[in-house]
Simulated assay, not measured.
Amino acid sequence: MSSTATTPDADETCAYCESRIFEHDPVCVRDCTADCGSPTYFCNYACLSAYIDANDLSTGDACNWSPE
């Protein structure tokens, strides 16, 4: 599996707050479990975290840990 890194457009906006990503510290996220779909851009980690929380994306995706 391979993917190509490209620079987004200068006017690319954040998937969460719709700010221009290059006015901040941008983060690019791809779901590579299914064909490495189109990248999703966030202006910073705070927006990425808020997006994850708002869309319940972490529910059921964590490993189960037991001290035993």
Rank of each mutant, 00 (worst) to 15 (best):
residue 2 S to R: 13
residue 4 T to F: 10
residue 5 A to T: 09
residue 5 A to M: 11
residue 5 A to N: 11
residue 6 T to K: 15
residue 6 T to D: 13
residue 6 T to E: 14
residue 7 T to Y: 07
residue 8 P to R: 00
residue 10 A to K: 13
residue 12 E to G: 01
residue 12 E to Q: 15
residue 13 T to V: 14
residue 13 T to L: 08
residue 14 C to A: 01
residue 16 Y to D: 06
residue 16 Y to V: 05
residue 17 C to A: 04
residue 17 C to T: 01
residue 17 C to K: 02
residue 18 E to N: 15
residue 18 E to P: 04
residue 19 S to E: 10
residue 20 R to Y: 09
residue 20 R to Q: 14
residue 20 R to F: 00
residue 21 I to F: 00
residue 22 F to W: 01
residue 22 F to A: 04
residue 22 F to M: 04
residue 22 F to E: 07
residue 22 F to R: 00
residue 23 E to D: 15
residue 23 E to N: 11
residue 24 H to R: 08
residue 25 D to R: 13
residue 26 P to Y: 00
residue 26 P to H: 08
residue 28 C to A: 15
residue 29 V to W: 11
residue 29 V to M: 12
residue 29 V to E: 12
residue 30 R to A: 05
residue 31 D to S: 08
residue 31 D to H: 10
residue 34 A to N: 13
residue 34 A to Q: 15
residue 35 D to F: 09
residue 36 C to N: 14
residue 38 S to Q: 14
residue 38 S to T: 07
residue 38 S to G: 11
residue 39 P to Q: 00
residue 40 T to Y: 07
residue 40 T to V: 14
residue 41 Y to E: 04
residue 42 F to G: 07
residue 43 C to P: 06
residue 43 C to A: 08
residue 45 Y to S: 11
residue 45 Y to P: 04
residue 45 Y to T: 11
residue 46 A to G: 02
residue 46 A to K: 05
residue 46 A to Q: 12
residue 46 A to Y: 00
residue 46 A to V: 05
residue 48 L to E: 01
residue 49 S to H: 04
residue 50 A to N: 08
residue 50 A to V: 00
residue 50 A to S: 10
residue 51 Y to V: 02
residue 52 I to M: 03
residue 53 D to N: 11
residue 53 D to R: 13
residue 53 D to K: 14
residue 54 A to I: 03
residue 54 A to V: 09
residue 55 N to A: 09
residue 55 N to F: 06
residue 56 D to R: 14
residue 57 L to C: 01
residue 57 L to G: 03
residue 59 T to A: 13
residue 60 G to Q: 03
residue 60 G to E: 07
residue 60 G to R: 03
residue 61 D to N: 15
residue 61 D to Y: 10
residue 62 A to I: 05
residue 63 C to L: 15
residue 63 C to H: 12
residue 64 N to M: 12
residue 65 W to D: 05
residue 66 S to L: 09
residue 66 S to Q: 09
residue 66 S to D: 14
residue 67 P to I: 00
residue 67 P to T: 02
residue 68 E to Y: 09
residue 68 E to P: 08
